[in-house]
Design a protein around this nucleic acid. Structure first.
Lengths: 151, 151
DNA sequence: TCTGAAAGTTTTCATCC
DNA sequence: GGATGAAAACTTTCAGA
């Protein structure tokens, strides 16, 4: 994707906030015609800037746990095995390979403590190659977005 | 919201995956007419089950940092002050009040290390009431969704 | 690359089951 | 609650600048 101009950044900010706006309303805000807005949005999809468009549910209805995981060895095979194991579980909402003391941060989303125990047992406790892990439960998901800076 | 049936769960899973499907295509999948699908989706919005619909950008284009924050005192005022301070910054992509050793998990999204330093300084280093914090950089954002179990 | 208008789809809504 | 069908709105395409 060629460099963004101010209108691109504005459109991407608007779409990350609410993707249900019409081309006409976006056009009014950024000062373009609906078809000019469409051409730009089509380009964001074609070039992979926008990867998907999704409905977001209220996180307060779920139990969110943020876990760190340290593997017991640093081999590529151990990493690959753990990733595949974690990704197989739909309750793994987010998974990051990270720098520092831990190797991964895993965010688990479940319907409650009972389901959390099941999922955590599967994904963390009895998973392959894990040396140790920690769990922090979200008492309050104050802000939960996937908004990224658009530049 | 009254209890979900199988069709509700199916629709919510579909919409969390891709909210651009038409009412007709959703109806074909779940076995309802477009207007019946619409009535259900309207209800998800009206009751706050779906909070918003957004475009998601490719996280690989950004620098993601996952930080833990421990406040220097447990007073409600300290919490309130820290939250307001963090929420004022648009690079705070996610913010969770958590149980355990730390008080908050903060996810920072920036365009690169230079911007990260600025933002981290503002949100963490020179922020009020912080005793200590840790930072883990995402080497690879393996999965980044906000998908929640629909029950 | 934009605008504006025509053509094609989707959404919305009233009505009936 | 759900289905249907018609009207309204939106999206898509394309000619012209």
């Amino acid at each position: 994707m060629p460099p963004f101009d101010d209108i691109d950044r504005h459109l991407l900010a608007l779409l990350q906030e609410d993707s249900t706006r019409t081309l006409a309303s976006l056009g009014t805000i950024v000062g373009l015609s609906p078809s000019a807005v469409k051409r730009r949005i089509d380009r964001y999809h074609a070039t992979g800037v926008i990867t998907r468009t999704v409905a977001v549910l209220d996180p307060r209805a779920s139990l969110i746990a943020i876990c760190t995981v340290t593997l017991d060895r640093e081999s590529p095979a151990a990493h690959q095995e753990f990733r595949a194991h974690a990704l197989a579980n739909p309750h793994v909402q987010q998974l990051y390979n990270v720098s520092g003391d831990a190797d991964y941060v895993v965010v688990l989303a479940t319907t409650g403590m009972e389901q959390h125990r099941e999922v955590a047992d599967r994904v963390l406790k009895s998973a392959p190659n894990i040396r140790r892990y920690t769990t922090m439960f979200a008492l309050d998901p104050v802000r939960t977005t996937l908004v990224l800076p658009a530049d």
